[in-house]
């Protein structure tokens, strides 16, 4: 059950077999670990930088990819302004798209 693209091919079954192999290796490594971890004791308590977490603290969804969004901020701000929500802009951009497509058909 493989599909080819002319250059390479993709076979999910092979991939699944390989992935199972990798998982087996990972499991074998995990089995080598220390066995002193006990559930239900204070070993389960979460720590942040060595401090006990204050009540209600956690890593929220917005904290993941924070740096990413921060780095792209100039672009994202501009894109946000582009999606102004004003109906006149919608129609204006539709006209732009229309003019572009007519020009391309006429010239191409």
């Amino acid at each position: 059950m493989r599909i080819g693209s002319g250059e390479g091919f993709w076979s999910p079954i092979v991939w699944v077999i390989l992935a199972l192999g990798v998982l087996a290796i990972g499991f074998a490594v995990w089995l080598q670990g220390r066995r002193t971890y006990k559930r239900g004791t204070e070993q389960e308590e979460p720590f942040l930088s060595g401090e006990r977490l204050p009540e209600g603290a956690g890593v929220g969804a917005t904290h993941l990819y924070w740096g990413f969004a921060e780095a792209l901020k100039p672009l994202l701000v501009r894109l946000g302004a582009f999606h102004s929500g004003f109906l006149g802009d919608y129609v204006g951009w539709l006209l732009v798209l229309l003019v572009i497509s007519i020009l391309v058909v006429m010239l191409g």
Binding site: L94, L97, L98, S101, I102, L103, V104, V105
Partner: peptide
């Protein structure tokens, strides 16, 4: 060509 351009514009939208 004009007709194709109009169709393209409408359908791409």
């Amino acid at each position: 060509k004009l007709a194709l351009g109009l169709l393209l514009g409408g359908l791409l939208m």
